[in-house]
Amino acid sequence: MSVKVSHITHVSNLNNIIAEGCLWSDAKRIELNLTNENIGYSHIKARRLQHPVTVTAGGYIGEYVPFNFCPRSVMLYVIHQGHENYHGGQEQILHLISDVDTIRATNSDCFFTDIHADLAFAEQIDDFSRIDELDSKKIHAKYWQDCKEEKQAEFLAHQSVSWNCIRQIGVKTPELAEEVKKIIASSNHQPDVVVKPEWYY
């Protein structure tokens, strides 16, 4: 069974994703001058635009679309707490769920890391026969203070991930589920919308 992956974004970005037909990398989104509700740390995003990738298509981490191997990520906790670049909380955050095989079927330039990709000592791996080396127990840990970096292992796809690759959209509340269903109603591709409060803090 293919390994599931999760990308978080603000609900206000969903119309753009559908209109573009894909999730763009930060670098490509900046190049295209697309509006975006940024929920991450600006300084980390800027650093990732200069952090070299030594495997697959090369370039920089910011030229890849990032996914975690679990919902309820460490970054979502930071968003929930509020940080200097975003204070909107987690109520409007979506989990866009796909899996490694589905994305790789449409994008051959992918790799994964054993810990948070931005860390200098993160291993970049494009040999997917090694994906079982990831520590699933730590990645899915509910209490992750002792395994914070391992929980933040990443799957990264070069430039874009097709909207058609998104299989499921996880939300915190029934109200947001209804909002999402209205947004995707006119889309040819309609992922399942699921209310998953356990994916949140």
Score class of each variant (00 low, 15 high):
L32Y: 09
S129I: 01
Q145M: 09
E175I: 11
Q92C: 05
L96I: 03
N38M: 15
M75N: 09
R48N: 11
K181L: 01
T56I: 10
A153L: 05
D126M: 06
D126L: 10
P197E: 08
I30W: 03
Y60V: 14
T54S: 12
E179A: 00
N164T: 15
L76P: 08
Y143G: 04
N107H: 04
F128Q: 06
E198P: 00
V195F: 05
H87R: 14
I39M: 04
E37L: 05
V78K: 10
Q159N: 15
H189Q: 07
Y64L: 07
E63P: 05
N107A: 06
D26C: 07
L96F: 01
H51Y: 07
L14A: 03
H83N: 14
A177C: 01
E63N: 14
H83W: 11
H116T: 03
V11W: 11
I184H: 01
V100C: 05
T106Q: 14
I8N: 08
T113S: 11
N107D: 03
A141I: 09
A105S: 15
A57V: 10
A153V: 07
N38P: 07
E37G: 00
C147F: 10
V53I: 14
A157T: 12
D126E: 13
S25P: 04
Q168F: 03
G62Q: 10
D126T: 09
I30C: 01
T56C: 15
P71D: 11
K151W: 06
R167C: 09
H43E: 14
L119T: 10
D127F: 03
A57H: 11
C22Q: 14
K181C: 02
L14G: 01
S108M: 08
L94C: 01
T173V: 06
Q190K: 13
L96P: 00
D146I: 04
A120T: 13
S186P: 00
K196Q: 13
F69T: 04
V11I: 15
D127I: 06
V161H: 14
F121C: 06
C110Q: 05
L94Q: 02
N13K: 03
H95A: 04
A141D: 12
S98Q: 00
F128G: 02
T102D: 01
T173C: 03
D126W: 09
V180N: 01
R104P: 07
I125L: 09
H140Q: 15
R72C: 06
I44M: 11
E91R: 12
V3Y: 15
